[in-house]
């Protein structure tokens, strides 16, 4: 074989190996899972957060996978190492920070109060229930137990107002299934309950959507503002990755789009989010104080 032929074969081998080495590079992309707390259903969570997950993958060069997680399983599945990034309510963030040193990435902005929201206690207008002291002996419906503005904030508000939900109410219940916050608003509207623990954000959204009107209810009391849903990162994650994800979240604008299955979609609109803000861990102290007073995780004592 002549020298020229050897050179030709060597050249061909180099040319063939180039795309193969490219594949190898792509295969080396870091993979990571994001646990998204379910609001209503897995299907809804996937639909909401698929574009955001794709955006984060594109921005950071890390292959992220969205994992929908039920609220009551969230802490346990995180502890088992199932996902490294978290998107949860502020109470779960506080719990995971306390138990596992979860790092704060950014807080989600949605509704009138930006990255914060509040809990309210409502009654049907004209029911004769006008103030918090009228709650005694009434039938009340709360949101899910781990909901900061659907349970924790109202329970705390009642305790601070001298009303013990365990003793002073006729009874209280928590709706089953999905759309709990809407169910409890309708529960009061249609008279199944006298009063309800409604997140202000849900009242805001339902009013805007025309499902209820501002004059349908009396707001008996409102809690202090607490941080809304929050992105967190595992303590073990390298700072460069944490910073990259944080930057990606903070740089999102309503115009940011990604291509999903041949369709160009707006990332924030799809996720029902107005934007992200860099809250500080100290901003969550208001949630911690509430959890201590209400005897809830991570400060629960038996």
């Amino acid at each position: 074989m002549s020298l020229l032929r050897y050179l030709l074969i060597a050249g061909l081998l180099v040319v063939i190996s180039l795309p193969l080495s490219g594949c190898e590079q792509a295969g080396e992309r870091q993979k990571m899972k994001i646990g998204y707390m379910n609001c209503n259903s897995e299907a809804e969570t996937r639909a909401r957060f698929l574009p955001l997950t794709a955006y984060l993958s594109h921005y950071t060069g890390i292959d992220f996978e969205a994992v929908p997680v039920d609220t009551h399983e969230f802490a346990e599945r995180y502890a088992q190492g199932e996902f490294a990034l978290t998107h949860s309510n502020s109470l779960l963030y506080v719990q995971l920070k306390f138990d596992h040193e979860l790092q704060l990435l950014a807080a989600e902005k949605r509704g009138n109060f930006g990255s914060r929201s509040a809990g309210t206690i409502i009654a049907r207008k004209g029911s004769g229930i006008e103030k918090l002291t009228d709650l005694k002996g009434k039938r009340m419906v709360f949101g899910p137990m781990m909901a900061p503005t659907g349970y924790l904030a109202q329970y705390d508000l009642m305790l601070r107002s001298g009303i013990d939900p365990e003793r002073d109410l006729a009874y209280y219940a928590i709706p089953s299934g999905s759309f709990k916050h809407e169910k409890l608003v309708y529960g009061v509207y249609f008279g199944a309950f006298d009063v309800a623990a409604a997140p202000l954000l849900d009242l805001e959204v339902m009013t805007r959507e025309g499902k209820i009107t501002a004059d349908d209810f009396v707001i008996l009391g409102q809690s202090p503002l607490v941080p809304y849903c929050t992105f967190g990162a595992a303590a073990k994650l390298v700072p460069a990755v944490v910073e990259k994800v944080r930057r990606a979240l903070l740089e999102l604008t309503p115009e940011t789009t990604v291509d999903i299955a041949g369709e160009r979609v707006k990332v924030l609109k799809s996720a029902w989010i107005d934007g992200f803000e860099a809250l500080r861990d100290a901003d969550y102290d208001v949630v911690r104080d509430m959890a201590r007073r209400v005897n809830m995780p991570p400060y629960q004592e038996y």
């Binding site: 009138n112 309210t120 202000l200 805001e204 805007r208 501002a214």
Partner: peptide, 13 residues
Amino acid sequence: YSHALLALGEVQR
């Protein structure tokens, strides 16, 4: 104020 905000939401619709 809470009621004012909800009433505002109706107008802003």
